[in-house]
Design a protein around this nucleic acid. Sequence first.
DNA 1: ATCCCTATTGAACACGTGATCAACGAGTGA
DNA 2: TCACTCGTTGATCACGTGTTCAATAGGGAT
Lengths: 243, 243
Amino acid sequence: METTSRAAAPRRLPPEERERSILDGAVALAAESGLEALTVRAVAARVGVTPALVAHYRPVMESFVAEVFTTIVAAERDEVIASYDPSVDLRTNLLRLIETLLDDSRDDVAMVWVQSWALGARNEALGTRVRTEMDLWHSALEDLIARAIVEDPVLREDPLRVDPDSSAWMLLAMVDGMSAHSLVHWAPRDRADLARRTLSAVLDVPVRDVPMPATPVPDAAQPAEHPAEHPAEHPAQPAETLR
Amino acid sequence: METTSRAAAPRRLPPEERERSILDGAVALAAESGLEALTVRAVAARVGVTPALVAHYRPVMESFVAEVFTTIVAAERDEVIASYDPSVDLRTNLLRLIETLLDDSRDDVAMVWVQSWALGARNEALGTRVRTEMDLWHSALEDLIARAIVEDPVLREDPLRVDPDSSAWMLLAMVDGMSAHSLVHWAPRDRADLARRTLSAVLDVPVRDVPMPATPVPDAAQPAEHPAEHPAEHPAQPAETLR
DNA sequence: ATCCCTATTGAACACGTGATCAACGAGTGA
DNA sequence: TCACTCGTTGATCACGTGTTCAATAGGGAT
């Protein structure tokens, strides 16, 4: 049997379509196997095309990686931010957002982020894109936090208590740190509790003041995972990809 | 001129010494350039020896990487934990520890950690070691936090308020997230303020209750770094290595 | 049916990777 | 001084990487 390669594309596409199909293939590949998997030959095999053609459309691999990174994380950010629910209050929305970001079905995007920090330190094209995407995340979260403060009867009285800017920094750091940890299957038993504590920290409000049941526990997975436990051999690839 | 390679070692060392020199060279190399730089040839050049000899002492590169990782992060953890100062209170000690961990002169160890999360997802030998080292970090921090709570007149009254276990999880996540971000030079203007907010979150205490001047500002670096600013071209390697 | 533009290919280059193994030679004990 | 042990080497393998380029052939225009 062949590997999970897409069917061979019809030959001789118009350039825009081929370009699109190559980008799509690279995005899917990186979402499944990480940015390190973005090889000329691997992308070519995925798209069903010759390595030379990939190199023809994207002559410099280094910047292609940066482009794929941007595509993946921008799509994810749009998706997460768009899940905002106007029918409930902002604090609950924030809590749900945090729980979404901590969900370990998102390990694929987490891998892309973690690799981007390592690769971006020496690949300046990538580094620039990484900073840009993080700025966008920061702005979005800062906005949500600021609105949550204004909406809150207690915090509203004390406008200097919470600085949305630094709160957004902290939130990003916590979420990114936990996502990185989950890549090696190191995660706390109770993720829901951790989300509550995270929101409590972000809003500078005691933990007991954060509502307990944000999501009505979609699936009945209770025991989760022990810190130092070994997962079954090689967990293979995470089942869920980006789109 | 040659690259920054160590002087050629005298020939025919006793096996323990050669083994030690190879490990030392690999540790220094990984601390400077990351775990990805650990190739048979690079280590050999560093030690001043033939690639075949490195392969002789460490026949499987994959597990050698895991060993080097452990050596580096264990040394760093010991060093940081040992900087505990019994002459001041625990809250101040915690604040200093956080400031130490956030200091960007530690980008070399941060790179090792970030790469370990990415590589550890598929290299199970490494993944196991990563979880072990993180468990040790978690225990150490949990212990410090628990003692800080007992020592604190307010928190002592309310023993259920702060759970040292989950606080340690949060602290690790925040510190690791910020360290990862700093690899691409994405860092908040005021790191000292961020350390205060982090401690506030960990102890579940309002920010205003965390003491302001923890370190008397060793150097006069004030403006620090703007989020989206581009560093000068290639910042080369960070000057400071592990030992 | 023919032409011609160009999307696409096959092949090759130069390099870097981990790993293997017969052979060398320095140092030590006899 | 000899001989032997074993730390060390040089060479080589099979493979994967990005990149280049002349040559091919698909398919719309004529």
